[in-house]
């Protein structure tokens, strides 16, 4: 039950992009090409899920026992950066084809606030290692859903004559607003069943 409710929240009802404003820079920046969006989604799903695990483990076995919670921000950002670096090295050696597909997106993820954001949310909600990982996966899937939808829409803009003042960010933001308006429809989905 908890699994379903976390998944539902992450993907639909409190989607990272449309409801929580997390990971916007990459969302707008990498949604112009469908293939790029897919590639980045793969990288985000991979990194966000396991970065949540690593951060939660770090919290449980190092920060809390030593009373270092006040250093959480600094610790998490280092853990995430190190994790991304490790993944990069690991993939390069063991799965070159996967590395080729995801490689260029990996460095971008360190500065994607969604990854640190989900780790922080996990602490705030007291999720622990297991549910923290699930929440990371859910958030990443929601983020990917959003960027894939948006890339589909944006590909059509290539053939349109859009006024210069609106090109790029303004139009992307307004479209995100319209999309998030549609996602409002999911609010409270299965609330009564799950509680």
């Amino acid at each position: 039950m908890k699994f379903i409710s976390i998944m539902l929240a992450g993907v639909l009802t409190s989607n990272f992009i449309f409801m929580q404003y997390l990971g916007l820079c990459a969302f707008v920046g990498l949604s112009e090409q469908f293939e790029t969006a897919i590639g980045m989604s793969g990288a985000v799903i991979f990194v966000m899920t396991f970065a949540s695990t690593v951060a939660a483990l770090f919290e449980q076995f190092i920060l809390v026992p030593f009373g270092l919670e006040y250093l959480r921000t600094i610790a998490y950002i280092l853990v995430i950066a190190a994790f991304v670096q490790l993944v990069e090295i690991f993939l390069k050696k063991t799965a070159p084809s996967l590395y080729k597909a995801l490689g260029i997106y990996l460095p971008l993820i360190t500065t994607n606030c969604a990854v640190l954001g989900v780790a922080m949310l996990n602490v705030k909600n007291d999720y622990g290692v297991l549910w923290g990982t699930v929440n990371g996966l859910a958030g990443a899937l929601g983020w990917s859903l959003a960027i894939v939808i948006f890339a589909g829409i944006r590909e059509r803009w290539k053939f349109m004559n859009i006024p210069a003042a609106l090109k790029g960010f303004p139009l992307a933001l307004i479209s995100t607003g319209l999309m998030s308006l549609a996602f409002l429809g999911f609010s409270g989905l299965f609330k009564t069943v799950l509680n």
């Binding site: 449309f18 409801m19 003042a165 303004p170 933001l173 307004i174 607003g177």
Partner: peptide
């Protein structure tokens, strides 16, 4: 969120027009 996205988008467009 929808209100926020749309507000920022419109503000940016308006400022772009002023700059142009």
């Amino acid at each position: 969120p929808p209100g926020g996205f749309v507000t920022l988008g419109i503000l940016m467009a308006v400022l772009n027009i002023l700059v142009q």
